[in-house]
Lab assay of single mutants.
Amino acid sequence: GQVHVGDTTYHFPNPEEARKFAEKAAKENNLQVTQHGNTFKVE
C-alpha cells in the first residue's frame, strides 16, 4: 500500500499498515483520508 501525504509518498508492504498510518496522519493533522484501491491519500 502507498500513502500520499502532501508531496511525500510512504510505501508499506501491507495495505492494512498503510491504512492505519493514513488514518493516524489524518487525525493528527485534521485532514481526510481518501482510498483508491491500496493507495491512500491524506489531504
Results as ranks from 00 to 15, higher is better:
K20Y: 08
F21Y: 07
E17M: 12
Q2A: 10
G6C: 11
E43H: 13
N14G: 07
L31M: 15
K41R: 14
E17S: 09
G1F: 15
A25H: 14
T8W: 12
K27E: 10
V33L: 07
L31K: 06
H36P: 01
H36R: 09
D7G: 14
K24A: 12
G1Q: 05
E23F: 14
T34D: 04
Q32E: 08
A26Q: 03
V42M: 04
E23W: 12
L31Y: 08
E16G: 06
Q35L: 06
T34Q: 07
Q35W: 07
E23R: 05
Q35H: 06
N38G: 05
D7M: 11
N29F: 15
Q35T: 06
T39F: 10
A25M: 15
F40L: 04
H11S: 09
F12N: 01
P13R: 11
G37H: 05
N30E: 06
N30I: 04
V42Q: 02
Q2C: 15
P13W: 07
F21A: 03
G1P: 10
Q2K: 13
A22M: 01
D7P: 09
E28N: 08
E17D: 11
T39P: 02
Y10F: 10
Q32N: 10
G37N: 06
E28R: 11
T9D: 03
V33A: 04
N29M: 15
Q35K: 08
E17Y: 05
H11V: 10
T9A: 06
G6Y: 10
F21Q: 00
E28A: 12
F12M: 03
A26H: 01
N14H: 06
V3Y: 01
A26W: 02
V3L: 02
P15K: 12
T34E: 05
H4D: 07
E28I: 10
A26P: 01
E43A: 12
A25V: 15
V42G: 03
N38T: 09
A18K: 00
G37Y: 05
A18W: 01
L31I: 04
H11E: 07
N14I: 04
N14P: 02
E16T: 08
G37R: 04
K24W: 14
G6R: 07
P15E: 13
R19G: 03
V5T: 04
A26I: 02
G37K: 05
Q2F: 15
H4I: 15
F21S: 00
V3M: 02
G1S: 14
T34Y: 12
E43F: 13
T34P: 01
F40P: 02
G6D: 05
A22E: 00
Q32L: 11
N38A: 06
T8N: 11
N30D: 09
G1I: 11
A22W: 03
V5E: 02
N14Y: 04
V33T: 03
R19C: 08
P15T: 14
A25E: 08
P15Y: 14
A25Y: 15
E16R: 06
V3A: 04
V3K: 01
T34N: 06
V3H: 01
H11K: 08
E28V: 10
T9P: 03
A25N: 06
R19V: 03
T9N: 04
K41W: 15
A22S: 03
Y10R: 03
G1Y: 15
G1V: 11
F12K: 01
E23H: 10
Q32Y: 12
K24L: 11
F12C: 10
A18R: 00
K20V: 12
G1E: 02
D7W: 11
K24T: 09
T9S: 06
F40V: 06
H4K: 13
V33C: 09
T9C: 14
T9R: 07
R19F: 07
Q32K: 14
V42W: 01
V33M: 07
T39L: 12
F21G: 00
H4R: 12
A22D: 00
N14C: 07
N29I: 06
D7I: 09
Q32S: 12
R19I: 04
N38K: 05
V5L: 13
P13K: 12
E16N: 07
N30K: 09
K24H: 10
Y10K: 02
V3P: 01
H11Y: 15
N30A: 07
A18F: 02
T8V: 14
N30L: 06
L31N: 05
V42D: 02
D7R: 13
V5H: 07
F12W: 02
F40T: 02
K41S: 11
K41Y: 15
E16Q: 08
P13D: 13
N38M: 05
K27M: 12
K20F: 09
